[in-house]
Design a protein around this nucleic acid. Structure first.
Ligand SMILES: [Mn+2]
Ligand SMILES: [Mn+2]
Ligand SMILES: [Zn+2]
Ligand SMILES: [Zn+2]
Lengths: 149, 149
DNA sequence: ACCTCTGCTGATAACTAATATCGTTTAGTT
DNA sequence: AACTAAACGATATTAGTTATCAGCAGAGGT
């Protein structure tokens, strides 16, 4: 009996094959890193630095290429919190993406799971000809500790 | 009797003064450019190029500085449509920002005025300690013409 | 009207995230 | 085992932005 992460990883290896991409050691290692870092929003350089410990042979260009590939396949969600670099996290494609709450005081990013955009998306569908396939929602404000000072 | 744009511009000049910033010719020219380009989402370089015709003396660094300043003062809204450059448009601070609909086929950006995030913001306020002050919402999908082919 | 002083400006160097290039290696196939 | 297109690591290059700095200018004081 396989555990959940292995099963999920295998599904993604299958997805790679289905799209005529090779399942390379580098792609496996990087994917597994994201399984280990659920909840974090990692930049390419952060991924590269984390890899230094156990996989210093993996090059930075490969990290960039792999993150981009996984984002394309919707395995990773690509995002930016206005610090001029892209960040990635595992895309729990159980229903919709969560929303991000960004503290303008300390920069901390927290999350909110409920989607609750149905009403808005329905309005857009009714009033425009645009076919919505995805969305990104960011809220800016103050986290509890920044608000109380 | 002054017209609407002049009045609005004067208000923003006042805002600059209130915050101890000088009202310079460059800042006036760049602000007025945005009054002329309502509905567009201009990058720094696009602003710089538009200025070449009538104000080639204004340097690119000044454009960057001015856009950043106005964004700080909430005169301009700063945004990015994932083309790795920041874009700006006049912030109609009548109520909330509009939302952006980004076509993943042709890259065209359209807009949707109604805010309709009350329900979602209320949920976040109820369930978390986060104090929401602003939001950015982007929808990805297909515009009418990209959808029909 | 002139001085002063500080903020602002333009030119350009420096920085940084990301991408392109290229010779070598390797996964998947025969 | 051999083959080949895809992927790789190292590194050069690009592109958007920011930092630096000497000169300018405009508001306030005299
Ligand atoms: Mn997240
Ligand atoms: Mn807009
Ligand atoms: Zn905070
Ligand atoms: Zn389109």
């Amino acid at each position: 009996m396989r555990n959940k992460v292995e099963n999920k990883a295998d599904q993604i290896y299958e997805l790679l094959k289905q799209n005529d991409f090779k399942v390379t050691p580098q792609r496996k290692v990087i994917l597994n890193l994201f399984f280990d870092k659920i909840g974090e929003h990692l930049s390419a350089e952060e991924v590269y630095n984390l890899l230094q410990e156990n996989h210093p042979e993996i090059g930075l260009a490969t990290v960039y290429r792999t993150l981009e590939l996984y984002a394309e396949l919707d395995v990773l969600q690509k995002m930016s919190f206005d610090d001029s670099k892209n960040r990635y996290e595992l895309n729990n494609n159980d229903i919709h993406h969560h929303h991000h709450l960004i503290c303008t005081g300390c920069g901390k990013v927290s999350e909110f799971s409920d989607d609750l955009l149905e009403a808005l998306e329905e309005q857009i569908t009714t009033k425009t000809k645009f076919k919505i396939m995805d969305h990104k929602v960011k809220f800016y404000g103050k986290c509890e500790s920044c608000y109380n000072k």
